[in-house]
Simulated assay, not measured.
Amino acid sequence: MLTTAPLKIVAVSAGLSSPSSTRLLADRLAEATRERLAADQDRTVEVRVVELRDLAVSIANHLVTGFPPADLRDAIDAVTGADGVIAVSPVFTASYSGLFKSFFDLIDNTALTGKPVLIAATGGTPRHSLVLEHAMRPLFAYLRAVVLPTAVYAASEDWGAPGDEYAEGLPSRIRRAGGELASALTGHTRSGASREATLDDGEDGLVPFEQQLAGLRVGP
């Protein structure tokens, strides 16, 4: 009987307190993805949560020395080896946290190529929700990840709120985002081997700019 390997999801939480709303949001997004995969695809899922709070000293040491301690190396390998990533940061000074940025600065800018990433953030007020679009989405686009359409922001007032006629409640947004990640994992994610083959073909098959310009030239 053919067995299918479990899908690996890694949730990166940059919350600083324990417990934290950032970790809670990461857990709920992972569970929503797991439930959708179990219901629609009958797929088993392995979920690992990387708490950046526990790696803060190792991250700082790596930035200074250039050598990752064992715990940080393990976390980086988990993220780059996952089938899908959930990335959640609290909002500080209208952007993601410095700890969150420092961790992803340590990941090679091709290591997430083609990997589906669900982005999310937490904050005290809804006014900071645009951090998902002006900060987090460009960060993962630079890392060549496939950033899912639905990003989830949870303000303090969203926890336990049912939503209204103009906006969905937080549980609904979590379910929709989890469904998108589940669909990406089963229908649109390439294996690591196929990603490497594409890269070997020359920068993801992109046509050099000079060649594109040559194609626009009008003959005599």
Rank of each mutant, 00 (worst) to 15 (best):
L2E: 14
K8S: 15
I9Y: 01
I9D: 00
I9P: 01
I9F: 01
V12W: 04
S13Y: 06
G15M: 08
L16N: 06
L16K: 03
L16G: 15
T22N: 08
R23K: 14
L24M: 12
L24D: 13
A26T: 02
D27N: 04
D27W: 00
R28Y: 00
R28F: 00
A32E: 06
Q41A: 15
D42C: 03
D42Y: 01
R43K: 02
R43Y: 00
E46C: 01
R48I: 00
R48C: 01
E51P: 07
L52C: 05
L52D: 04
L52R: 04
R53E: 10
D54K: 14
D54T: 14
V57T: 12
S58D: 15
N61C: 03
L63A: 12
V64G: 01
V64R: 14
T65G: 12
T65D: 14
G66N: 12
F67M: 11
P69V: 04
D77P: 04
D77W: 03
T80C: 14
A82F: 00
A82M: 01
A82P: 06
D83R: 03
G84L: 05
I86S: 01
A87S: 12
A87R: 12
A87Q: 07
P90Y: 06
F92E: 10
T93I: 07
T93H: 14
A94Y: 13
S95K: 07
S95W: 02
S95P: 03
Y96I: 05
G98D: 08
L99T: 10
K101V: 08
S102L: 05
T110V: 11
T110I: 10
K115T: 14
L118E: 07
A120G: 11
A120H: 05
A121D: 02
T122E: 05
R127F: 04
H128L: 10
H128W: 03
S129K: 04
L130W: 03
E133W: 11
M136S: 06
M136H: 06
R137M: 06
L139T: 14
Y142H: 15
L143W: 11
A145K: 13
L148H: 01
A151W: 01
V152Y: 08
W159R: 04
G160T: 02
D164M: 03
E165C: 02
S172L: 08
R175P: 00
R176M: 13
R176G: 14
A177C: 09
G178R: 07
S183D: 13
S183Y: 09
G187T: 09
G187Q: 11
G187D: 09
H188E: 11
R190S: 04
R190C: 03
G192F: 07
S194G: 00
R195D: 10
E196Q: 15
E196W: 04
D200N: 15
G202K: 13
G202V: 08
E203T: 12
E203Y: 14
D204P: 00
Q211F: 02
A214N: 13
L216W: 12
L216D: 01
R217Y: 09
V218F: 13
